[in-house]
Design a protein around this nucleic acid. Sequence first.
DNA 1: AAGCTGTGCAACCGCATTGGT
DNA 2: GACCAATGCGGTTGCACAGCT
Length: 328
Amino acid sequence: MGRSPCCCHDAGVKKGPWTEEEDKALVEYIQRRGGHVGSWRGLPKASGLNRCGKSCRLRWTNYLRPDIKRGNFTDDEERLIISLHAALGNKWSTIATQLEGRTDNEIKNYWNTHIRKKLLRMGVDPVTHQQLPPDQHLDGASASAAFFPETLLWTAAAATLGGGLDTGAIMQAQLLQQLLHAIGSNNTTTNLIANLAASNAMLNSGGGIVPNLLLQDQMNMLSTGANYLQPGYLSNISGFAGQDMVQQQQQLISSPAPGTSSSAGVEPADQHRDTAAEFALHDVSPAADRAPLEEFTGLLEPMMDMPGLCSLESDSFWNDILKDSYRF
DNA sequence: AAGCTGTGCAACCGCATTGGT
DNA sequence: GACCAATGCGGTTGCACAGCT
């Protein structure tokens, strides 16, 4: 497929920072058309701007659009970005759809300048969201090989969907997280369910399962609520965004580590699967309490009858978890 | 005060994807 | 299905600014 020549290569087309006059001309043009641009390529000529159409689009979407939120990111926004990044990777535009008034460019910049460094200081790999070896910590602090079941859960969910995570995949993970919360903070149960998800991830790692799930407004409601699924290191730390990093590191170190993972030289996707596999092999706990599991399956059953929410019967991710749950 | 360095962010660039013919 | 124009996306760059020496 041939690449179209970009108008930006035309001689005489202005580049660089936009002036107030240019901003005004662009805003007025778009407002005159009722907020509907039509053709970006034709916009510069029609509006009298000596700019590339691409440049106009970028200026509008990243700066001039009236619904853009200004100011610092809140703690909740930061957590949401981290959670979504753990599942989606650098899909900035997808992440931006879940943060009202924030642009993909803004989120990307914020990630690269703030969050990325923060995670490195915590000893968390900002790409894989896994614990880094002690010698790779940004602050040089040593840490035990802390392990987070919920991080694994994220990984498992992402791997289950073959890397092509869509809103349905996020919903699966979020619903699973909510179920875990509903059951309570029983670590044994959490680990068990994480194992089930990990096993499922191994079985389906190349499958690219795309579940038939939720309506967009349900997705928005849940993903912006307090119960969205977070990587384990977030749920282990209260007030992540504003907390002193040394203190956070100490909290991480103080957590007992049920398992370790070695991932040097492994591609991220493979690393996810390897870690999931390792955890599943070493830490399946048939001694998990029966009562919480009954509660878990009890919570799932009525959801099967909720039209438009999810179709558990036709979705092997949930089916496998359900079957495995009953087996215990 | 001048120079250096680090940081944050707007904007650019090139490839990927989408949609129309 | 092939082709091409238009748009979208993510990585990268460059500049302004602040803080430090």
